[in-house]
Simulated scan of single mutants.
Amino acid sequence: MNTFTRRGALGLVGGAAALPMLGSPALANEKMTVGALRFTSHAASFVAFERGYFAAEGLDVEFKFFQAAQPMAVAIASGDADYAVTAISGGLVSLAEKGATKVIGGALSEEKGIDGQKILASNAAFEAGLTSPAALAGKNFAVTQVGSSFHYMGAKIAEAEGVAVKYKPLQKVGAIIGALKSGQVDAWSIVPHIAKGLAGAGAVQIIGNVADYIPNYQVTTVFTSAANAANERAKTEAFLRAFSKGADDFNAALVDKTAGDDGATEMVKLIHKYVYADRPYEKAEKSIRNGAMRINKNAGLNMESVQDQLGWMKSEGLIKDSITSDVLVDPSYAPVI
Rank of each mutant, 00 (worst) to 15 (best):
M267R: 11
V268C: 03
I323D: 13
A226Y: 02
V222Q: 11
L270I: 15
F39N: 15
I206K: 05
G174H: 06
I323S: 05
M32C: 09
A252K: 14
A69G: 06
G311N: 14
P192R: 07
K283D: 10
A229L: 00
N216M: 10
F65T: 03
V191S: 15
T131G: 06
Q184D: 15
G317W: 03
F54M: 12
P133H: 04
L198P: 01
T258K: 10
A334M: 08
A55D: 09
I157M: 04
K102P: 02
T5I: 14
N231P: 00
N123S: 12
A229I: 00
D321Y: 09
M72F: 08
Q309H: 06
F46V: 12
A175R: 13
V103L: 03
E316R: 15
T220Q: 11
K168M: 12
P215H: 10
G91A: 13
G23K: 03
I323E: 14
F141L: 14
F46Y: 13
T144L: 08
G178C: 05
D249G: 12
K166V: 13
V329K: 00
G8L: 07
V103K: 01
A107Q: 04
V327G: 03
E237Y: 09
K297M: 14
A48R: 05
V13N: 08
W188E: 14
A199M: 06
I288K: 07
R294Q: 09
